[in-house]
Every structure is written in C-alpha cells, then in structure tokens.
Design a protein around this nucleic acid. Structure first.
Lengths: 222, 222, 222, 222
DNA sequence: AATGAATGAGTTTTCATTCAT
DNA sequence: AATGAATGAAAACTCATTCAT
C-alpha cells in the first residue's frame, strides 16, 4: 500500500500508469538519485534511462523534488517489506533473529544499494528540508519492529531483564544502519575497516556481522 | 601543524596570507559547504561572503575540490584539537571521561556545526570520491584516542576485562558521531527523538548524553 | 551528401532541423569562426547572431569543437561543389581549364571568404589538433581533381610528357591556395603585392591570375 | 640592428636590460606564442618561464600585443640572419644555392620552429590587424634576396633567359615558405604527404627538398 | 496523453592588466 | 626598478522546466 507522502508527491496521471511502468520509472529514478545524489542527478538522464520523455515525467511528478520524495517513499516501503518482514518469519533466539535481520540487511544493501543510498542522503544537512516529511515515517516503523523483538525476548528471559527497551532498540537500529551504510558508502566502509581489519585484508560482510553480533551480545546478554 | 592534505590542496599564495585572513576564508567556505553540500555550494558565493574576488580564490586553491579538501582538513584539525584533546586532560573514571568527551562533542557540534556537517557530507555516496583521501585520516585519529582510553581503563579494572578493545572503541565512536549528527541534522535528531522522547517533549542534549552513557555503561560494566 | 566527420560532429537534433535553419546556423558559425579564429570565437555570439539560444546550440553540437568541425566540413563540401566541379564542366585546353578554376576560386574566396578563412586557420600550429581529422579529407579530394586534369592533358599532348604528375598537381594546388589566401588575408595579399605590384597600384585579382597562369605555363609547356 | 617596429613596441626599460636577458625573454615569449597561438598564449606563463615577474613584463612591454610584435620582429631578424645570409656565402650554380637555402630553411624550421610558427600565425585572418605592420617588412627582405639570385643566374646563363624575375622569385619563396610550414604544422605536412608519399612511408625533409628542387628545375631550366 | 525541442539563468574557471609595497 | 597579489569581466557549458505540436 502506498503511503501518504507518495500519494501527494505524484500526480494522478502517474497512478493511472500500469504498475510495471510505475515501478520501472521509480527504480530508474532511485538508481540515478543514489548514484549522483539529489542535486547532481539529472532529470533528463532519468527520463532517458526510464525510456520516457521529459515532458511525460513532468506530467507524472510536479517537479524534481516530488520525484525524489516519491522515490524515497518507494524505497522505504521496499526496506520495510524486505528487511523487517524477517522479524515476523525468523525463528530461534533473539540473537538468531537479529543475525538473520543483519544478514537480510546486508543482502538488501547489496541488491538495493540505491535505496540505502537515498536513505543515507536524507541525513545530510543540505537535505534537512526533506527530513521533516520523511524521517519520522522511516524511523517509527523500524522502531516498532525492534521494540517488539526486545519485549518478546525479555519475556522469554533471553536477555538481561534490566535492559532499557528503547536503548536496546536504538542500538540494534544503529548497527543495522551502519552496516548498510558500510556496504554502499566508501566512507562508512573505511570506518569499519579502520576499527576491525587489523591486517590489510578487507573485512567482508560476514565478519562485519560477527563484530556487530559480538557487540550486541555484550550488551544484551543476561 | 597543518596536515598533509591541507598542504597539498592549497597553494603557496594562500599560506602566505595573514593567518586571520586564511581562517576567515576557510571558515566562510566551511559554512557554505556545510549549508549547501559540496555540489550545491557556489564558489562565487563563498568568495562574496569571504570578501575576496573570484580570481583570488583560484590563486589560493587549484579549484573547488581543492578548496573543499582544505576545508575538510581544517575542520578535522579543529575537531581533533577541541574534542579529543579532552581525553588527555579529562580526569576521573573512564565513564567520567567519556561523558566529558560527549559533552565537549555536543558543545563543538553547536559551535562548529559546519564542520560536523562537512564530516556528515563525506559519508554520502555522491562523495565517495573524497572518501579515499579523507576518511582514513579522520577515523585513524579518533580510533587512536578511543583505544588508548579503553586500554587504560581495562588496566585499572574499571571495565570488563573480556571486552574487545576494537568493539568498545567503535561503539564509543558511533555514539559520539551520532550525537554530533543529531545536533546538526534534522534527520538524525528526529531519529533520536523517535527512540527516546516518549512524550512530545524534545529530548535535549543532556538527555541524549544520559541515554548514550546508559548504553555505554551497559556495554562496558565489569 | 554529408561526409563522415560531419555526421559524427553534429547531433541528431541538428539533422532534424529544417535544412534552411541548419544552413543558417552553420553559415553564422563559419562567419564568426572565420572572423575571430577558433579560440577567440565566442559561442554566445554565434548563438545570438544565429538567433538561437545557448542551450539549443549545445543540443545541436556536443561542444565548441564539434561545431567547428561541422563548420569546416560544411565549408569543404561547399568548396568541392563550387570549385572542383568546374573541372568536370570546364572545356578547352588544360590551361583554359586551370584559368577557369582559378577564376572560380577567386569568386568563391570573395563570396565565401569565411570558408577560406577557416581553411587557412587550419594550418596554424595552434590548430594542429584538428589537422589529423581534417587535412587529409580536404587535400585528398583536391589532389584527385588535379591529377585527373594533368593525366588527361598529358594524353592529349597539351603538356610536357616528362612532367611528374604529383609535382604538377601540387604546384597547381599551391597556386590555387595562395590565390584564395591572398584574397582574404591581408598578409598573403601583401605578399603578392610585394612581388608583383611594381608601382603602388594594387594588383587586382585578374592580374594575380595572369601571374599565376604565367608561372604554370612556364612549368607545364611542352 | 633592431628594426623600427621593435623599437616602438618595447619600452625603454627593456632596452636597458642586459642583452642576454632581453634575448632570454624574447626567446621564451616566441616559444609560448608559437606553441599556443596569440590568443591562447598566457602572459603569466611567459613570465614564469622567463623567470620574471608579471609586473616586470608590463614595464618592458606596453601590453600583450606589443610583446607579440616584438617577438615577431625578433624572429624575422633571426630568419634573415640565418637563412638569407646563405645566399651571400653559398657558392655553385643557382640550383646548388637554392638547395643550400632550402636545407638551411629546413634546419632553421627545426631549430626555431617557434619563429616559423609565428610567421605562419601572421597569415591567419584573425591576425589581419598585424599584417599591416609586419608583412611588408618580412616579404620585402626575402624578395630582395631571391631577385638578386635570379638576376645573377640569368646573367650567367644558368636559367632560361625568358623567365620573369618576379615570378621566379615568388615561386622560390612559396616553396621555401611551404617547406618551412610543412615542418612545423601538421596540416601543411599532411598536405605534402598527400601529394608525394605514394606508400604509407612518411616523406622526410630530404625528400621534400628533392621534390621542390625538381619543380624549380622544371621551371627555371633553359 | 505524450513528446522533445527550446530556454536562459547560473556554474566553474581563466587571464590581461594594475598597483601597493 | 621589481614584485606578485588582486581584480572582475568573460567564456564554455549545464539543466530544470515549459509548451507547441
């Protein structure tokens, strides 16, 4: 189901398109925005790659900003569907579930690096203007999932019963986020390497997850 | 002492300027880059705000990129001087020291929001080209300080002796970074609020630090 | 038919324009390039004189260089059509034919002084970068015509049968070229005057051609 | 002895400099002008290469144009000294003398390619403004030498007595000029190759001279 | 509904020349 | 006399958006 922002940002004409064409256009736009950043992304390039005319795009979206908002919204829906859905299906202890979600995140960040890049882009000060509309939606959704997980685990006695649920949720989310960032951004990857690749060998995603699990374990273990 | 990048990125003519003028130009540039992001920042605007001619800027720096590198480097030096210097002077237990550094970070992020914004900017995918030159420098320096702190605390038995030093250092740095981000970026602030402001009241910096200390305490306590 | 370079240098959008508009734009550009030389010619000025926007020009041609290449190519096609076509239609002895071509060249250089100026421009060392693409095309075409003429004349016994065909062709071309240059370039005109205007009276084109014919006659006569 | 233009174009301050410094500055400027053409040549670059300050140059010469005029004049004096001086010393038949001058020209064009490039530059339409002052001087001087040679040869019966002296002189000069051009300009070299290098092998300077001598022989032989 | 050509303000960078020291 | 920093007007090129067809 499409969210409110999404509905506002795009024009009726867009919603009338065959869903396949809608998805194709959004995928393309997400890709270009991710690769170049909001300001460097070129509307004409998006149109060309999407196989539509410049004029058409401006029938579908009010302007570049609307298109970006729609892309973002589209990406967040995807993230929710692909990552947090694991919380509902994953089985085992809380640690096994977290590892599962981390692995899913890692796969997602590889497959949909563009979506993650968009999310990363949102944090920059020059995009403060977007935060008001977008951040809340993303974070509330994620928080809900984490909190549920922790509560459940605490009831089952898998984790320290003194732990503050919000803190635990926040820490898990931080790790999820920084893992995803480290997969798509050279800077966040470098940062990871600086702390953990003692030799010159590159830390692969598996190792990153091990490190994260160790730190979460340290935190939550009873 | 100015770092290597700094020396390379700026021209001799710049280094010959009175230090006050140098600082003024860099401050201005940092501010504009922070406000607009690298690509959106306008060289002419920087010149105007700094009170120098366009031509002059290009005598001081090879091009926009060099100016940016210099700004970044300038900012990192400032951060190191103002934040990490606290590690050397702060006294008390490891927890008191960390709180001190967090408070310093908070003050720094308010006073030099532009510098932090620049650092945040560095993480975005569209700035991957800068990561190679810049990330290493920043992170290695920070890591050094954290590691020293942890080692010292472990020797004194203030923290769990089983703890992995790198993990501890990484977690402290994450918290420092996200605290600073939450002060300058609407998105990262929102994210903090989502997790911790149960009511509609805004979480102030003091509360943010309390939360962070709680999570670090949980992690390190013996 | 448009030549290869021409096709490469201009964009599809240009070729779709009404032929009249194409010609108008190229004529204008040729004129400005001729007047100012490649580097001194101003893209904005060309646009203004041609009555199109700056943006439009960059839709038609990749950049200034492409525009120049197209202009050059356009000029060469014109030269071939207007000058060398005479070889095919002109009748009489070889000398009559050559005089005819010289006269045509003279008229062409007056009417299309810009095209000749472009050709002259090509020789300068600062335009060496263009020589590789352009020179071959122009010269091969001209040489073909000259050689055909000489061969034909030799068969008919109009000229010395010992004469080297390439030398004869080269000399004819030199004279054609220097005649054209002398019409558009103050320097090459002055040069002509220095050698032939005994009095202070200016040598007119007719006299220049007489002089050239005398020297060619001396060379080819059996 | 310095010519009139030279004296006008340069300031008194320049003439007071040690001759070695004067020569050094002019050599440098000639080199840069030759490499880049008048408009692309960069005054600051000339100063840097010459080891003088920007300010100094503007004490020595009124402006860029004055500097160029002085360079040109300096170059022509060099050409006269090095090339036409051979007419006075060379011995043998007229053909031997001409070959000697061609060889000298070839060597000169290699050693002082910059001077020749300047001369070539003078012909372009965009430099018409210079022709008035400069062309006359160069051509008159050269013509004098050629005419003397022909007259002498005619008296000795080495060449056809019917030949027009001016035509002969002009043709010799054309060949000299085009040989020099073909050595420094890709376009004029290509032109030579088109006519004479039947195979893909490049025509070397020796061969070029042979070709020229053949054509001159054809023309002058009794 | 869809197209895609056209716009023109805005961007980075260069450079001849001046002038305070 | 000499320096070299400073100027600021160009210049090439880009791009979000519009609009006639």
């Amino acid at each position: 189901m499409l969210s409110i922002i999404f509905k506002i940002a795009m024009q009726k004409t867009f919603k009338k398109l065959p869903e396949k064409k809608q998805t194709h256009i959004l995928d393309t736009a997400v890709r270009v925005f991710a690769r170049k950043g909001y300001y460097q992304a070129n509307v004409a390039e998006i149109c060309k790659e999407a196989g539509i005319s410049n004029g058409a795009l401006y029938k579908y979206f009010k302007n570049k900003e609307s298109l970006f908002l729609s892309c973002f919204d589209y990406g967040v829906d995807l993230m929710n569907r692909e990552i947090f859905a694991r919380y509902l299906t994953a089985s085992g202890t809380v640690f096994e579930k977290i590892r599962d979600v981390l692995e899913t995140t890692s796969r997602f960040a590889k497959k949909h690096s563009d979506v993650v890049a968009l999310y990363l882009e949102l944090g920059s000060v020059s995009n403060n203007r977007f935060a008001d509309v977008l951040s809340d939606k993303v974070e509330k959704s994620a928080r809900g999932f984490h909190v549920e997980l922790i509560k459940d685990a605490r009831e089952r006695g898998e984790i320290d019963s003194d732990i503050d649920i919000n803190i635990a949720a926040y820490i898990i989310d931080n790790n999820l986020m920084l893992l995803a960032f480290s997969i798509i951004s050279d800077h966040y990857n470098q940062r990871f390497q600086t702390y953990f690749s003692s030799t010159s060998r590159e830390l692969d995603d598996r190792k990153k997850i091990d490190v994260i699990m160790a730190s979460i374990g340290q935190l939550l273990k009873p």
